[in-house]
């Protein structure tokens, strides 16, 4: 296991310049034809906040008690953290099918493409996060020093999204139906996680699902750390974090073992 992980690391190190080039190309390339260019990276999160403020102001959505945290702030932060998870899944789970032409042209570690997606994702998350923090301050949130743990506290969520994404990236090549089920299933999971509502829900079956849903803790812990400066559900959070780390290493090895072999199936797709 350690030799495989070491092999993956050496491959990433050897192709680190390619990782950087692909990140740069994808980030800048998507805005190159736009007149306002990368300003879109700031405009889109501001628009997202505006939508939630309008919806809440109009009384369309009622989330229940959000513990003195203004609802737009609660939803904005929850959806951002959810987006951090689901966007990484989406982009990584497509990496093999979307890069097929490149993969059959040159033999390089497939993990390079995954690393590129992770870096691109982190940059795409960082800019809206700055906007979100400004909005949080505008809504009267005062940060405690424990809020500094917010970014590290997201690592288990990143590992979980990455793990499911890498697993499905391989599976999507040979078992499209299964990948589609997971894609759709994760959309459902969003509604089974306290994101647009709080964990203190009245529906008993949903409360039970929320209790057993690891994302409740991986998202809730980080959100409460930033908005309230408190550590909530530390035990479940640590258990889910440990499980995410183990799953990540297992899936990383699975990806390294199988991605080369499924490549020959990819050209026919």
């Amino acid at each position: 296991m350690f030799s495989r992980i070491s092999h993956i690391w050496r491959g990433l190190h050897a192709y680190r310049y390619l990782v950087w080039q692909l990140v740069r190309t994808n980030l800048i390339g998507s805005y190159k034809k736009s007149f306002i260019g990368m300003a879109w990276m700031f405009i889109l999160p501001i628009l997202a906040v505006a939508v939630w403020v309008v919806l809440h102001g109009a009384g369309i959505v009622d989330p229940g008690d959000t513990d003195d945290v203004p609802y737009p702030v609660y939803v904005l932060l929850s959806t951002s953290i959810w987006g951090f998870f689901i966007d990484l899944y989406r982009t990584v789970s497509q990496v093999m099918v979307n890069s097929g032409r490149l993969l059959v042209m040159k033999d390089f570690p497939k993990e390079v493409l995954v690393a590129e997606k992770v870096l691109e994702h982190l940059i795409n998350f960082a800019i809206p996060l700055v906007v979100n923090i400004i909005v949080l301050i505008a809504f009267g949130i005062r940060f405690h020093w424990t809020a500094l743990w917010f970014i590290p506290s997201l690592i288990p969520l990143l590992l979980l999204g990455l793990s499911i994404g890498m697993f499905i990236a391989v599976i999507r090549v040979v078992a499209v139906d299964f990948a589609t089920i997971v894609d759709e299933g994760l959309k459902l999971v969003m509604f089974l996680t306290p994101i647009v509502y709080t964990s203190r829900i009245q529906v008993s079956w949903l409360a039970e699902v929320v209790t057993w849903n690891p994302l409740t803790y991986l998202i809730g812990f980080s959100r409460d750390l930033l908005t309230k400066g408190i550590y909530t559900d530390v035990g479940p959070y640590l258990i889910c974090s440990g499980a995410s780390l183990v799953i990540f290493f297992l899936v990383l090895i699975f990806f390294q073992m199988t991605s080369g072999r499924v490549l020959e199936r990819l050209t026919i797709v």
């Binding site: 050897a14 190309t25 490149l102």
Partner: peptide, 24 residues
């Protein structure tokens, strides 16, 4: 393969070179 049409020739030299495993 791997060349990006919206980037300049010079930028694509670095991109293509990286794909062939070259360092900067």
């Amino acid at each position: 393969a791997g060349m990006n049409p919206v980037f300049t020739g010079l930028e694509n030299i670095y991109l293509k070179g990286a794909m062939f495993g070259m360092s900067k």
